[in-house]
């Protein structure tokens, strides 16, 4: 059966001494440095920005609600009179963390399950990969809806649920890669030299499949930021008073007529962050897999 994945990746070119590193290669391409710069800006502003302002992001001032931009409030205020810029920065902390951490969850789960299935094959493969099939057969959204209804919408749950809805795709890519890798000379050589299976798996096989998984994972961060936003749109994501770009967008829905900026800022921020991750993912793929450009 042919393996299929969102990003059909081939084995990355092993690093040759003397050739520039991944980061250097990335910085040579416009998509690479633009996206990296954008991400540094977004993460930097979200995590460092609020430190400059001692105001509380949750303190409400109903009599100063829905103000337009001014020197005091560069992006205006929201429906409860909170500074919109500060909310955006705090919301960024949450949205950007949810995106990144949930993808780490998917990466770890995908690497372990896909890698083990591809390396050990046999019954392990059948069980693990059918499990992946089951997960993949439920459209992610339906699964997430059910899970959030059960476990509630606290940030750790949202992170876990979003991450686990992506791990199947990750596992399939890693599985396909591992299948190819295990045939290769260096794995066979390591086994012939008497290395334990655990050692071969973690020291020899996994490092070879990690780059492909990282490319998929980078694209996946954007996907999970979007997913959190969509969940919040349906009222199931991160819950107020904690701000996230997703729930800010949802909260802004009734104000699109009178205070459209409340919907435009978080929408733009989401689009920018996701765009940056997508560009970075594409650039990474080009760097790690230079055959197709």
């Amino acid at each position: 059966m042919p393996s299929r994945s969102l990003t059909q990746l081939r084995r990355p070119v092993a690093r040759v001494p003397g050739r520039p590193g991944v980061l250097a290669l990335l910085l040579r391409r416009p998509a690479g440095w633009i996206s990296l710069a954008l991400l540094v800006l977004l993460y930097g502003a979200s995590f460092l920005g609020p430190l400059l302002d001692h105001h509380s992001a949750t303190a409400t001032h109903p009599l100063h609600a829905l103000l337009g931009p001014s020197w005091l409030h560069p992006l205006g205020t929201d429906d409860l009179g909170r500074d919109e810029l500060l909310r955006m920065l705090y919301g960024g902390r949450v949205s950007l963390s949810v995106g990144l951490i949930s993808m780490v969850v998917a990466l770890v789960a995908g690497l372990l399950v896909g890698g083990l299935a591809g390396y050990l094959r046999g019954a392990v493969e059948t069980i693990l990969m059918r499990l992946v099939d089951a997960f993949m057969a439920i459209p992610a959204f339906f699964l997430i809806l059910a899970e959030l209804a059960v476990f509630g919408s606290s940030p750790p749950v949202v992170i876990l649920v979003v991450g686990l809805s992506f791990w199947g795709q990750m596992a399939r890519v890693v599985f396909a890669e591992s299948l190819k890798m295990r045939q290769r000379e260096f794995i066979e050589a390591a086994q012939a030299l008497g290395a334990s299976r655990t050692r071969v798996f973690f020291r020899h096989l996994l490092p070879q499949v990690v780059p492909s998984a990282i490319v998929l994972g980078t694209l996946g961060v954007g996907w999970s930021i979007l997913t959190e936003a969509a969940l919040s749109f349906l009222g199931l994501g991160i819950q107020p008073p904690l701000a996230s770009w997703g729930n800010m967008l949802q909260n802004a829905q009734v104000y699109v007529w009178t205070s459209p900026w409340l919907a435009i800022y978080p929408g733009l921020a989401i689009a920018l962050a996701v765009l940056a991750f997508n560009l970075l993912g594409n650039a990474l793929r080009d760097v790690l897999d230079p055959r197709i450009r």
């Binding site: 949750t58 409860l80 919408s153 009222g235 199931l236 107020p240 008073p241």
Partner: peptide, 28 residues
């Protein structure tokens, strides 16, 4: 209900009470 509760939470905070808001879907 959610923004109304957030405002009440802040008024009570202002007199020194710690209010933990727990937002869930309507059914829950």
């Amino acid at each position: 209900l959610v923004p109304m509760s957030e405002l009440v939470q802040n008024y009570w905070k202002a007199i020194g009470i710690d209010v933990q808001l727990k937002v869930t879907d309507w059914n829950t």
